[in-house]
């Protein structure tokens, strides 16, 4: 049971890192630009499709990853310029409608470009296989690589937000947008930077999971809800909050998903226990959210309105 706990903790950490990469962009867009972007999951999906395309074209995962980053930035800039820019002054309802429409358009567009069959991305040779953990337990190298890469990105973001001029503007924007604008900062440029940064991070998350999962339309929607939970728990606009929130949500989700059914199996038949566990795990996440919001209504690191 201890072994299982350790493995699930690692799985939770890996999922948390992914959620963080997606949530970091979302929380910035939400906190600084005050835009609810339901299409953020689309960027995650696009990242996976981009690396599938580039990796297939170049025959190398690493070249694919390298080419994916500028392409992701380009996608971010285009979406910001074409769609997001028009939504800054609109109500939240308009934003929800427009970005939800974008989700559908993007999913159909992806089907038209890449077809309906899922794509797969070959795993780089040096990261395939597994390392011994404890006793007979092994853990896939690639999942460890995701954790390491995600932590590196988190550290980079931490430095950028706390010690650079752009980071200062981001923090200022998240705290009080109108003052930043009044001080003569080009707010449009700041918004474009924020959105593109978020897009690149989400695409990176998509690219990193591509070798583990098959690349498919709709993969973005499945993570979007959890990501919103992360943003709300962490506090809107806070990168630090997004990081802690993501790890918390993912660990609760993965541990609940396994230990829930195991405990339930003691009292129910396996099919019902499995089903209950599936229902239970996401519920735990929302219960966690409710408890945190009850204690801290603005989230762990959010500023009270």
């Amino acid at each position: 049971m201890m072994n299982l706990f350790v493995l699930q903790l690692l799985n939770g950490l890996q999922l948390g890192i992914l959620l963080f990469l997606i949530a970091a962009g979302l929380t910035l867009v939400f906190g600084i630009m005050d835009v609810i972007n339901l299409a953020h999951g689309v960027l995650y999906m696009v990242g996976a499709y981009l690396i599938a395309t580039f990796a297939a074209a170049t025959g190398s995962f690493w070249l694919g990853l390298l080419l994916m980053l500028p392409a992701a930035a380009a996608v971010g800039l285009v979406v910001e310029f074409v769609v997001m820019r028009r939504l800054y002054d609109r109500s939240h309802l308009d934003q929800v409608l427009a970005t939800f429409g974008l989700v559908m358009i993007a999913n159909e567009a992806v089907k038209m470009i890449w077809g309906t069959s899922p794509l797969s991305v070959p795993m780089p040779d040096i990261l395939s296989g597994s390392v011994p953990l404890m006793g007979p337990l092994k853990y896939p190298v690639y999942r460890i690589a995701i954790i390491v890469a995600g932590l590196a990105v988190a550290a980079g973001l931490f430095v950028m937000v706390n010690y650079t001029r752009v980071g200062m503007l981001l923090r200022a924007g998240a705290t009080n947008r109108s003052t930043v604008s009044a001080l003569g900062v080009d707010i449009n440029r700041l918004f474009a930077i924020v959105f593109t940064l978020g897009a690149v991070l989400a695409c990176l998350a998509g690219a990193l999971v591509a070798p583990i999962l098959s690349v498919d339309t709709g993969m973005g929607e499945s993570v979007l809800i959890l990501t919103f939970v992360v943003v709300v728990i962490g506090g809107i606009g806070s990168i630090k909050g997004a990081f802690l929130g993501a790890i918390l949500v993912a660990v609760v989700d993965t541990l609940g998903g396994v230990f829930g059914p195991i405990l339930l199996r003691e009292v129910l038949d396996p099919a019902a226990a499995g089903q209950m566990g599936r229902v239970l795990a996401p519920m735990l996440v929302y219960i966690l959210m409710a408890v945190i919001l009850f204690a801290k209504p603005a989230g762990l690191f959010g500023r009270p309105a």
Binding site: L7, Q8, L15, T254, V258
Partner: peptide, 9 residues
């Protein structure tokens, strides 16, 4: 990953 963790354990 969850199911494989159980198998490993």
């Amino acid at each position: 990953s969850s199911e494989l963790a159980q198998i490993a354990a």
